[in-house]
Design a protein around this nucleic acid. Sequence first.
DNA 1: AATGAATGAGTCTTCATTCAT
DNA 2: GATGAATGAAGACTCATTCAT
Lengths: 195, 195, 195, 195
Amino acid sequence: MSLREKKAEKKKKEIIQSALSIIAEKGYHATTMEDVAAKLLMTKGSVYYYFKDKQDLLFKSQKMLLEQSIQNIEEIMSKELPIIEKLQKVMVVHIEFLITERTGFAMGARPDQFFAGDQLQEIISLRQKYSHCIDKLIAQGIESGYFNKVDTKIVRNIILGAMNYVIEWYSSDGSKDKNELAKSISDYLLRILIN
Amino acid sequence: MSLREKKAEKKKKEIIQSALSIIAEKGYHATTMEDVAAKLLMTKGSVYYYFKDKQDLLFKSQKMLLEQSIQNIEEIMSKELPIIEKLQKVMVVHIEFLITERTGFAMGARPDQFFAGDQLQEIISLRQKYSHCIDKLIAQGIESGYFNKVDTKIVRNIILGAMNYVIEWYSSDGSKDKNELAKSISDYLLRILIN
Amino acid sequence: MSLREKKAEKKKKEIIQSALSIIAEKGYHATTMEDVAAKLLMTKGSVYYYFKDKQDLLFKSQKMLLEQSIQNIEEIMSKELPIIEKLQKVMVVHIEFLITERTGFAMGARPDQFFAGDQLQEIISLRQKYSHCIDKLIAQGIESGYFNKVDTKIVRNIILGAMNYVIEWYSSDGSKDKNELAKSISDYLLRILIN
Amino acid sequence: MSLREKKAEKKKKEIIQSALSIIAEKGYHATTMEDVAAKLLMTKGSVYYYFKDKQDLLFKSQKMLLEQSIQNIEEIMSKELPIIEKLQKVMVVHIEFLITERTGFAMGARPDQFFAGDQLQEIISLRQKYSHCIDKLIAQGIESGYFNKVDTKIVRNIILGAMNYVIEWYSSDGSKDKNELAKSISDYLLRILIN
DNA sequence: AATGAATGAGTCTTCATTCAT
DNA sequence: GATGAATGAAGACTCATTCAT
């Protein structure tokens, strides 16, 4: 990749970050291209140089978020760790990532409200990839006897729901820091599976 | 209340229902006054006879949803039931209500994205009222020794998050009916509190 | 049709007339919805109340023009007239209509530059209907021995091209009035067919 | 002219050709500088090195077309040929040129829709030069008794209109080749002038 | 009470044009 | 000479809102 291309890539990421942060704050529809550009001291026109249209920007940003999440989870899964610690780590990282990025949009919102056609398929497929990782962990835990026998799908969704909800209520009070909070939540959620 | 007023009241509820269902499907910003009116075979103009503006309609609809939820929960709380059964019933009713109304908007989304000033205060206050009920149940359970000692706020939010997430993934497959699903979820969530 | 509908219909025609005259002057792409509205002392928004979008307005206006032309020609064809007079009348009316409406757009421009899909089909079909009328007249003239034997398609297109070109050069000088000019042209064109 | 200048001149012609072909296909307004450049595997910026702006490109391209046409006609006029054959040859060459270049833009469209000021004057003047050639041929034909006495201006415009219209309807079916078609048309048009 | 019509502010999007490198 | 990047003005389109009837 040439220097030029690297710069362009960097710019794209900056724009995505800008979009992400404003979408997190206002929601997708209330976010204007003007907002996204202004935050970077750019003009609307420039944003359109890097992204076909608003939908494209949304899609790419969500995709990036999901891919990052998948990378996070796969990295953990490839490690040699006891299943319980593994699942806990997955949860902690997920929650910390959410809080850091200030957006649960990618994981939380119903994708069919924002995507259609191929984009929808791709987003769904990425989400499933993520879900499957969690499912696999749960299944492994059950098989190895460390976890109670549960309905994997339901428990996975409980875990996802509980985690994604964090951004709705975190922040307001900083009695606990990010990491501590993430640990707490994961501890509680593990109780569903253990004993 | 005169007949006329009753009729007006009924019409308002119809409009709110229409708004609610479309917001659930498309999201607030993507919902137009035209949509809301068309679903009832009305014209936009008529909707404005009953509601000051779109924001007013949103506010009243969310308020209604929250008030209904609070009524649901309070009704259960006033009953003579073992604490565990009480909390479970609260959860089951919450989930069923969500699925029936097809919207977790009222409980799930960050209110400051949609409301400001007095409206925001009122919505927050209603949500807190609801949250406090759950907190109370948890506290009572702990006090009476039925529940493990936990961080009430965190566990309450785990419960809310897990429950509200249901609308994101329910429906797709009907292997379990509404009630069964609600029971399952509440059972799993109770494990956080029991043993 | 109710009074309301009649009024709406009238308004639509006014807008079409406005659009037609500006398109005739500036061309389609250079014509803005603002222009069309301003000419009628309306706002853009109002135009959109009557027409879905700019393309819709263009399509409806061209359709109206073509339908009017077809009506003109069919009226003449149904009359009891010698074939020569008939064809001449068709030409005269065509030219006068063009000059009066100040636009040869409907008949002249390549429709595939402006329409696609169903719209294109409909426009083409209307044009063909018109062309067929002329073809029929030529064919009848040949059959009855009044016209020379010619390649109908080519001669028809010569006639159409020559007539439609009038708007490009008429106006500049008013040495001849509309009707006289139309007669002249049709006389000359008839020479292709007679003797 | 230096080698450098020759190269530049060649490049300009390439760009003009590209512009011409896209304008012929889409029309002037729908043609973007991007399109013109892309067809030559250039970037927009480069085009601006050779042409001041889009208008300049349009003007130069139309001028080139007109000058070529004028050269064509003058070449024929300077030949020793019977007047009838001369006019016919003019028509045949005109039509073939049109079909080859795929654009009747230069001759057909109203120049005041695209040009103003000096550019408009120059385009009009070139067109007139062309028209005058045809007028001269007609006049000579009348004088020498080969042609009927006609209104020169009207007949010239009939001829131009009929010829320019060819690009609107040629192509679709290739029953006749370019040259044959051109001959046919010119034969028919000559009937206006002869007997 | 209801509605057809009109409005205007706000947004997305395109594209000719410029310019530093 | 060439190009990637940036810009801003223009224009299409949407939609909440108003109002006369």
